[in-house]
Design a protein around this nucleic acid. Structure first.
Length: 881
RNA sequence: GGGAGUUUAGCUCAGCUGGUUCAGAGCAUCUGCCUUACAAGCAGAGGGUCACUGGUUCGAACCCAGUAACUCCCACCA
């Protein structure tokens, strides 16, 4: 036999993937079958495959492959996301390395570089997914910034503007000084950081030069951001604060620059925080901004777009905000204006994409009103029309949807869809697809404009990446440009979406909104939320920690199937995945187990003249397979993929390999009968089909080895098995027989009897009818020379009980310790009596008998009878020792 | 600060509307095996006061109240 002793995935994976591709097994076109559609959460073009993608893609592929085998028209649409901030940052950095500054490039030149970069590196992640076996319809691969998808974005922008939901305005936005763009609230990640609270002296304008008394000549202000004092517009105290009542309306000097500001009052200020004095900096803090509006304060912006201080600051101009913070502390100290510095923990916002500290910044941006769109989107989920799996995310979803903020959709970048707004030098503007249309719009509202069409300039900004991804399930089927095309009608709404809970709001909620607005129905029926992949210490996997294995290395080492099984084993829906290599090892071992089961079967010689002795085993496994298949199907219905995986795992390893194959395995160098052989191959085929969604490569390989296949008859398109006959009696009886076998093996272990030494078993002749059929099976699996059905118990034997029946393994006196045997039996009796007592108490309890359900009482009666019968058996046995 | 969730064996998790000897699975551990498919294996075994405290009930891992620890989401206290 030439089949290798261990399964070597590397030899076959590429072969089968190429084969599947070549024969178009992943392709889908609308037909009269029921569609089953998944759209991939498009990974960033800048992305490199990480463990999160692996988990996500494995789950999608399992679902899609199973649906395909169940006869549905399975369509998994892949693609990538242009990820404006991340990609632009990457391209800018790359250009910088080449000595090219973005500032020196025109928009067109920059985009040319960016597209070049995208063409070169943008597809890597999809190529990596292929290694995992992802059966996407690659002909449908989309990119969020390709022309047609961009046109959809523009169309939607214009439409929503017409509806009055998109507006332009000056707002305090989250400014990312590294990406040099505004970002949405959702893209800000708050983290607690150790910072310092600086207590700074502000002298009153009218203070006596020779006097230095607290709250008379000066106030102390506590701030975490001393570098912004130059932007102060006022000092604010609580009107009821007795300490400062005499100072209301007085003038006070900003240290270092000695600009005069006023002391104002507002109940917003908490008296017992810090010193109760708040420096109001409208340009650099959202609350201060609002206070500023209320009190009509001047807005002094001292920061440039890159986070460095500008001319308005007067001092430290050009310094970065963090450098300035350190330096100003020194300056204040020198000027005797720094009272003290305390350690302080505060919440600071970081950019999701660049990890830069967010700067609140006042600027003109585009916004999308969300309150109206949120209403139907909330409804879909609350009514269950869109199911979140697991359901616990419904709560978080609800909370968010009921507290939506307007969405800042403009980004000060070039990589993305340019906002279709056109401005005249006087500030008049129109939103339209082209300059010409915009010009007509402007003429409509202002016919006597002195400007020319050539004066129109398009908005420099692009829209948020999510403003294109929220259209993904529609735009990938060209549902905006051609709303009645065959694809969108057939595939939309899709079935399952598999994604991470982190982007439930970023993406999932907004897709539901867009789906409702533009198709009148939600884009998917089920949202399977995976967990976050963590290391075994529970830390999120990240590049900086270096705790993430490279998925491709894992595939190389353990095989794609092993990795897939490993991912599934440790991931239940919604739970974080605590990943470690041992899961993948387990997956690899499982693949090897299947491989070897095949080697065994394939190695048998068939003798056509033999009659089958294995009807019992065959009937049993048939029922077993079907009953487990039923469970697996239920698991899938509930999206319990790891349980489905585990059920299949045990079915194959325990039931098929350890029990069934051992039952039918012919003796050394003995042939097998034809019937058993064919039945076994049939079972094995069914197992391959059942496992294919989990382990596509191995199953496809073996599928072609079990028998001659017709051209293109592949496992990937084989019909998924259906649970058929299940004989519960057979299952029950065999389970009992297996218990008997286990007991005998246990005795062997305890008594240190070699597995090679044959034993015999004595069963009471009253049980002959029940156990005779299992005679051979028990002898084979427990290595017995014989089973005797006798009225009397043997002289020297170890006994055990299965069900309510007692069994004896006769052993010579050296192995039988009568005292120990008695003790063991006595202990059993004692336990049973205790158990009986508790059952009796229940049954004698009038309230139990009158309240409990009939089945429950019936069960208790049975327990009582069983226990009594067992005790009797044991007592008899005790007497005979 | 508000909200949600979690807590079951050494680890990761099942346990549906309270009721079968209900306390489970996989891995890990221990013992014995190089048994002619597989040592990436075979056969067995030992592990748990179901976080804690009370309550409801004939009966609680499951329902209720409180406590503790952890996790996540949301939030502008300088």
């Amino acid at each position: 036999m030439s089949i290798s002793k261990t399964y070597n995935p590397n030899l076959i994976e590429d072969k089968w993937y190429a084969y599947w591709l070549e024969h178009g097994f992943f392709k889908s076109v609308p037909d009269d079958r029921e569609p089953y559609t998944i759209v991939i959460p498009p990974p960033n073009v800048t992305g490199v495959l990480h463990m999160g993608h692996m988990l996500n893609a494995t789950i999608q592929d399992v679902l899609i492959r199973r649906a395909r085998m169940m006869g549905k028209n399975a369509c998994w649409v892949p693609g990538t996301d242009h990820a404006s901030i991340a990609t632009e940052a990457k391209v800018v950095a790359l250009l910088k390395e080449k000595g090219i500054n973005k500032k020196d490039l025109s928009r067109e030149e920059f985009l040319k570089y960016a597209f070049e970069w995208k063409d070169k590196y943008g597809g890597i992640i999809l190529e990596q997914l292929k290694k995992l076996g992802a059966s996407c319809d690659w002909d449908r691969t989309r990119f969020t910034m390709e022309d047609s998808m961009s046109r959809a974005v523009i169309k939607v922008f214009i439409d929503l503007h017409k509806k009055g939901w998109i507006y332009r305005g000056v707002r305090m936005v989250n400014w990312d000084p590294q990406g040099k763009t505004a970002i949405s609230d959702e893209e800000v990640i708050r983290k607690e950081v150790n910072s310092k609270l600086y207590f700074i002296k502000y002298r009153l304008a009218e203070a006596n030069i020779n006097s230095d008394e607290l709250n008379k000549d000066y106030l102390v202000i506590a701030t975490t951001r001393p570098e912004t004092i130059m932007a102060d517009a006022a000092i604010c105290v609580n009107p009821h604060d007795e300490r400062y009542k005499h100072l209301h309306g007085k003038r006070i000097l900003i240290p270092l620059i000695n600009r005069e500001i006023t002391i104002i009052t507002d109940e917003y200020v908490t008296m017992d925080f810090g010193t109760g004095c708040l420096k109001v900096t409208p340009a650099h803090d959202l609350n201060d901004y609002e206070l500023g509006i209320k009190h009509k304060l001047q807005v002094i912006d001292i920061l440039d777009d890159d986070g460095s201080l500008n001319e308005n600051a007067e001092i430290l101009v050009g310094k970065d905000r963090f450098a300035a913070r350190k330096e100003i502390a020194v300056l204040l100290e020198a000027a005797n204006s720094l009272v003290k510095v305390e350690d302080y923990k505060s919440q600071v916002g970081f950019s999701e994409r660049t990890d830069a500290v967010i700067e609140p910044k006042l600027s003109m941006q585009w916004f999308l009103k969300m309150n109206e769109m949120a209403v139907p989107a909330l409804d879909y989920v609350m009514s269950g029309e869109v199911k979140l799996i697991p359901e616990k995310f419904k709560n978080t979803y609800k909370h968010w949807m009921e507290n939506v903020h307007d969405w800042c959709i403009s980004r000060q970048l070039w990589w993305g869809q340019q906002i279709p707004a056109w401005y005249l030098p006087d500030g008049n503007f129109a939103v339209a697809e082209t300059k010409e249309e915009a010009w007509l719009e402007i003429l409509k509202s202002n016919s006597n404009s002195t400007y020319l069409i050539t004066d129109l300039l398009q908005d420099e900004d692009v829209v948020d990446t999510w403003f294109s991804s929220w259209l993904w399930p529609i735009s990938i089927f060209d549902g905006f440009e051609d709303p009645d095309n065959e694809d969108i009608k057939y595939y939309y709404p899709t079935n399952d979406l598999v994604t991470a809970p982190e982007i439930l709001f970023f993406w999932v909620a907004r897709m539901i909104m867009a789906g409702h607005e533009y198709r009148g129905e939600a884009p998917f029926k089920n949202v399977y939320l995976t967990g976050i992949v963590r290391d075994k210490l529970g830390r999120k996997m990240s590049k900086s920690l270096g705790n993430s294995p490279d998925p491709l290395d894992l595939i190389q080492e353990f095989g794609a199937d092993g990795v897939r099984v490993g991912m599934l084993l440790c991931s239940s829906a919604g739970n974080d995945v605590l990943f470690n290599n041992s899961y993948v090892e387990q997956g690899r071992n499982f693949a090897n187990k299947i491989w070897n089961a095949f080697r065994l079967i394939k190695g048998w010689e068939v003798d056509k003249n033999l009659t089958s002795q294995n009807i019992l085993a065959i009937n049993w496994f048939e029922s077993k397979f079907n009953s487990e298949l039923e469970i697996i199907n239920q698991n899938f219905d509930q999206y319990k993929l790891s349980e489905a995986m585990m059920t299949a795992y045990k079915l194959v390893w325990d039931d098929f390999c350890s029990i069934y194959l051992e039952m039918i395995k012919p003796g050394f160098e003995q042939p097998i009968d034809e019937f058993t052989y064919h039945k076994t191959l049939e079972f094995f085929d069914n197992i391959l089909k059942l496992l294919h969604p989990f382990m596509p490569f191995l199953t496809e390989e073996l599928w072609h080895e079990t028998k001659e296949r017709k051209k293109l008859e592949c496992c990937i398109t084989a019909k998924y098995p259906n649970p058929e006959i299940i004989n519960r009696q057979t299952l029950h009886d065999t389970a009992l027989a297996m218990k008997v076998i286990a007991e005998i093996r246990n005795i062997r272990n305890q008594k240190q009897i070699s597995p090679k030494e044959k034993l015999s078993l004595v069963i009471s002749s009253s049980l002959q009818n029940q156990y005779e059929a299992y005679n051979e099976v028990i002898c084979k699996l427990a290595n017995l020379s014989e089973i005797r059905f006798e009225k009397d118990k043997p002289e020297k034997a170890i006994s055990f009980i299965v069900g309510t029946d007692e069994f004896f393994v006769p052993l010579d006196s050296s192995k039988t310790d009568i005292v120990a045997e008695r003790e063991r039996i006595e202990k059993d009796i004692e336990y049973l009596q205790g158990f009986l007592k508790s059952v009796d108490i229940k049954l004698n309890n009038e309230k139990f008998v009158s309240n409990a359900k009939a089945e429950v009482i019936e069960n208790e009666r049975k327990k009582k009878a069983d226990a009594e019968s067992k005790i009797q058996t044991l007592q008899l046995s005790l007497q005979s020792i």
